[in-house]
Design a protein around this nucleic acid. Structure first.
Lengths: 343, 343
DNA sequence: GCCCTCGATGTAAGCGCTTACATAGATCGT
DNA sequence: ACGATCTATGTAAGCGCTTACATCGAGGGC
């Protein structure tokens, strides 16, 4: 008997009145259709469609005590690695009627804490977060809400968090191993800032570990740490090659850095890989198109996103989620690595 | 006097009880702090913090009839152009306490309609949508809700929608003009699918218009339409160069296609730009790093995202939003264009 | 000293929806 | 033919918050 107020979106009670049923039936038609007689169901559906009504999410969330929202917290969308992960998560969640909230913390730990709190206030039912190097209060806040979460891009064996990712240390150990096997002994590293970034710190550690096994080390002047950008790759390799002895190979923290290194080395008249071997990490789309194509580690970012989403969905559906085995990045040997000193 | 139930997040009433005030005061502390005496305000704030309480968004949205959510509907995050736009929007909205909902329709119009409806059900207060080639019911649904929206990446002078973008037709007219001025007469085009993509259709139209002004046209065998990917750029340029007469210049619908064209032309032993001029569009990060660096149109995608967000925020705050002048992409003449026949 | 004003706080009525429980037919076994 | 059982639907009590309105004191003008 309620009067639908013109100019405002219709409510369930308006639809109920128009279809001559109760609001309970309207609700059931949309949430438990099998509990409603087909004839009535069709009538309600038709009425709702005619009136342009759909359940109002806030009201529904309140009554149901479920928001059907999950959050993704990433450093930035400007890196195609994270963009791909988010895209895959969004697709996986959308299939189950779950909406994705996105937030970029720009590698700022305080921002990340803030973002997570905002998401919790929004009632997210689960959370995916890139990396585990976050302030303790971030994880404390999540735990206090008892919601499932997952950390992506990290997979330390002894992490206290559920992780979807790979072992960064081991991956870079493998890269270093590859260069050592080729015979390199003077190896440079161009890498993202390690401070507050567990993944990057683990990578550097992996390189150091592999070198140490051969009694080698990274010389300070052969270690450049800075923002991941093509330009930083360029300037780093230029600086490094001015030292004596110059490195015969350089391991880069991601493909952007490696691309910069490659371009600059070529611009300096060096031949890659004859004069200098270069490795990347991530295998972004452009890498295999370069000349020579970049030797790098391939990471399946869509797979990471999908697995993270699947894990969280399993948690939400109450099931015991399957264990999360680490992903294994694969070394793609392309054209930028070769034995040293062939020049 | 309410009993805080253990194991569940605290509610405003729990905080009110603990701080010995009413729920109204608690609410005011968080929404209109200036209306509460400082002493009480501090006490409530401290209590809330101690209990880990923050207003529950669904309840608040319901009571306030405002969700503080806006939606962004884009084709895909796999294109750094859209990722950058979303990143900028997210940042701009976050500053005002507004949360961004994201959805990718993968260039599928039905998916876009579905996504928009889902967002409306979620109570988004505003919507940003890439492109205007959408089903009429998409815009009808938005209008029915009377919420502000904005179309990005399009800016036809006579569009019925508020737009943040540039005139695609004019932009490609400019590119073609550039090549014509250099003396090219046989010009190929490698472009994304035009069906259901107003922006791309306008681009092709711009090229055709400029050629027509000189009594020229794109030969059918010099027009390749397909998914934007480096590989499609490669195969297209290869096919095109096998025709007779072969084009002396090729205009690409975006930088990815242009990169493919450039790489393949070089792989075929051609010298760019001596044997073939190539243009891109978007000016993605890698483009200026190529060898030779790519001549392309620069689009400021962050700016588009920011303007779209600012416009929507202005609408939400009730102000008459400023007019939306078109952005003007600028042609960046780098190393892939030159007069023809210098070989 | 009294009444009025005004600012600070409390009371309580929703916001739109879901769902436990109540109810009313229908079905069925005996 | 009667109660037990079931199914389809309705009734109404919240979910957690905001806010119009009521209330209560403290100041202030006369």
């Amino acid at each position: 008997m309620s009067e639908p107020k013109p100019g405002r979106p219709p409510r369930a009670v308006d639809v109920a009145a128009a279809a001559e049923v109760s609001t309970a039936t309207v609700s059931r038609v949309f949430n438990n259709p099998e509990k409603v007689a087909p004839a009535i169901r069709e009538r309600v559906l038709a009425t709702a469609k005619a009136m342009g009504w759909m359940p109002h999410a806030a009201g529904s969330a309140l009554a149901r005590r479920r928001s059907s929202i999950v959050g993704a917290v990433i450093p930035t969308l400007d890196n195609e690695v994270f963009a791909a992960q988010v895209g895959a998560m969004q697709a996986a969640f959308a299939e189950r009627g779950i909406t994705l909230l996105l937030s970029c913390f720009n590698y700022d730990q305080d921002q990340a804490v803030h973002d997570v709190q905002a998401m919790l206030a929004r009632g997210v039912e689960a959370l995916a977060i890139v990396g585990e190097a976050h302030r303790p209060e971030l994880f404390a806040a999540i735990r206090a809400r008892h919601i499932p979460y997952v950390v992506t891009y990290s997979h330390r064996p002894d992490s206290p968090h559920p992780c979807v990712g790979f072992d960064n240390r081991q991956a870079f150990h493998g890269i270093a191993r590859h260069l050592l096997d080729l015979g390199h002994e003077t190896i440079g590293v161009i890498i993202q800032p390690t401070a507050g970034n567990d993944r990057v710190a683990a990578r550097l550690d992996g390189v150091r570990g592999a070198l140490a096994e051969c009694g080698l080390a990274v010389r300070p002047q052969h270690l450049c740490e800075g923002e991941w950008s093509i330009d930083f790759g360029r300037q780093s390799v230029r600086a490094m090659l001015a030292t004596d002895p110059a490195p015969t190979a350089v391991i880069c923290g991601n493909d952007y850095l490696a691309i910069g290194a490659l371009l600059e080395a070529r611009a300096m008249g060096l031949s890659v890989p004859r004069d200098l071997s270069i490795t990347g990490f991530d295998d972004i789309a452009i890498s295999r198109q370069l000349d020579p194509p970049l030797t790098t580690m391939h990471i399946d970012n869509h797979e990471i996103g999908r697995r993270a989403a699947d894990y969280l969905l399993a948690c939400l559906e109450g099931g015991q989620p399957a264990a999360l085995p680490p992903l294994v990045p694969t070394l793609i040997r392309r054209g930028t690595t070769a034995p040293p000193g062939l020049g």
